[in-house]
Nucleic acid binder design. Structure first.
Lengths: 249, 249
DNA sequence: CGTTGACTTGAGCAAGTTCAACCGGCGTGG
DNA sequence: CCACGCCGGTTGAACTTGCTCAAGTCAACG
């Protein structure tokens, strides 16, 4: 919690510089993936005025907590997040992982309070979109509203597929599907589709896929023995993408 | 498929009458639950002009199919629907059930094609909102856009809870949670929270909850033996709501 | 009255969990 | 500097939940 201080300053400075120099969405590396896509430059300028870029978090710090009143929608800027929902008895489900350019907190719009908890998996930063102000300027920017809806819709589709995974797939199919999903998302972000880091713990993966940690461990071992992938701690190297696809069920 | 004809005419007539008489959203029994809530009367009038109310389906008829291009968003008017997503090997997951006043097809917005298949569980009708026109008039109606987002957000939250159910709950907890979820939704619609019909088959319930049909059957039997609920074919009577809640996990 | 489809019931089985031990890296404090 | 405890991960063996398969009931229907 309080150890955030040893990493925060660096990020704070970057954010500050960007803000002072009006380094805005247009100059952001994530521009093509992000919200402003398709906006006219004057609309974009207006959007820029309400975006707060100063928000940085350290590992395990929460971006928002379950039932906290909706303040902002967030876009991951760097790092990674997980969201969880908890059952009354304390068990909890990791409902999603979020990478740069992805939106977090959209499930709060309806009830005006976050319906999940979001935690940083590593040192991470976000762009903060104050919802109140977003609504205000959105009223005059149908493309912006449409972008938001499109994002919501995209997450909805992803969730349906996750339901398919959780309800109908075997442990091995789950694991293969998960790895490929990560691969695709990294590729979309301009990174390698075959080599990347698993920023989340085995426990988080297991929880997310509805498995036990031990099962994940064994499965990863088995995939590695089969020569499909190579693991080295948190880094993954996919050796046989095609074989992996055929395991997805 | 073709047997739709023996029930369709009745509904067609009703729809026609309503359209001719300009019986619009305001006079709809679902008004308080539905999209137009919070719109000004002139906006509502405009919305009314694009809504098509003539769409009626018989049992098992599909409202839209996986990967069909997005044409419209639908609001259930009467009856009930299920949506499914299929894995490449043919297995499929029932991702949701939809009752009057609920939206179907919103997962198509992002990709502009439906990402699931929607089928009527019984003779049903929908209000059809042509998406193109909805976008057009929505551009000038921020409240309408916000309503849509709110709906998307609500479904998102529901899906996260379903992920919790699928990933972390025992068979009994799943069943109890499911029954209570139905109960609440019927109550919201002004029906009894304790007595209602299960419009879906045991197979659909089982699939939706990630269980085998047999397990559902046993579970329902067990709940009935315990005096928590009473079943008579498709109708349910919840005897001990509180006990059921305590089983939800 | 035989057929069909939806549901129930019983018995054995398997996938994945649980429990327990173990390993290695890392930060802390003696 | 090393011992210690802790955390994340891996491995092995026993166990349990819910599945599979098979048979049987029941109601609707031609």
């Amino acid at each position: 919690m309080t150890q955030a201080n040893n990493v925060a300053p660096l990020f704070m400075d970057i954010a500050k510089v960007e803000h002072e120099h009006h380094l805005a969405c247009q100059s952001c590396a994530l521009y093509r993936l992000c919200l402003p896509l398709g906006l006219h430059s004057d609309d974009l300028a207006q959007l820029d005025t309400i975006i707060q870029r100063s928000h940085s978090l350290s590992r395990n710090q929460s971006l928002f907590d379950y039932l906290a009143p909706l303040k902002s929608i967030y876009v991951v800027r760097s790092g990674a997040f997980k969201t969880t929902v908890a059952a009354s008895n304390g068990r909890e489900q990791v409902t999603g992982f979020y990478f740069p350019g992805e939106f977090v907190g959209m499930d709060a719009i309806h009830s005006q309070s976050y319906q999940s908890t979001a935690k940083a998996l590593e040192t991470s930063s976000v762009c903060e979109l104050p919802f109140e102000r977003l609504s205000e300027i959105g009223a005059a920017m149908p493309q912006l509203q449409m972008q938001m809806m499109s994002r919501l819709s995209k997450e909805l589709s992803a969730d349906k597929n996750l339901m398919l995974l959780l309800g109908k797939k075997t442990a091995e199919e789950k694991m293969a599907t998960f790895l490929l999903s990560l691969s695709r998302r990294f590729q979309d972000r301009g990174f390698s589709a075959t080599e990347f880091q698993l920023s989340m713990s085995r426990a988080d993966i297991a929880n997310h896929l509805g498995l036990a940690v031990e099962t994940v461990s064994r499965l990863l071992g088995r995939l590695q023995d089969g020569g499909l992938v190579h693991f080295e701690g948190k880094s993954v190297n996919i050796k046989d993408m095609h074989a992996l696809q055929s395991l997805c069920g």
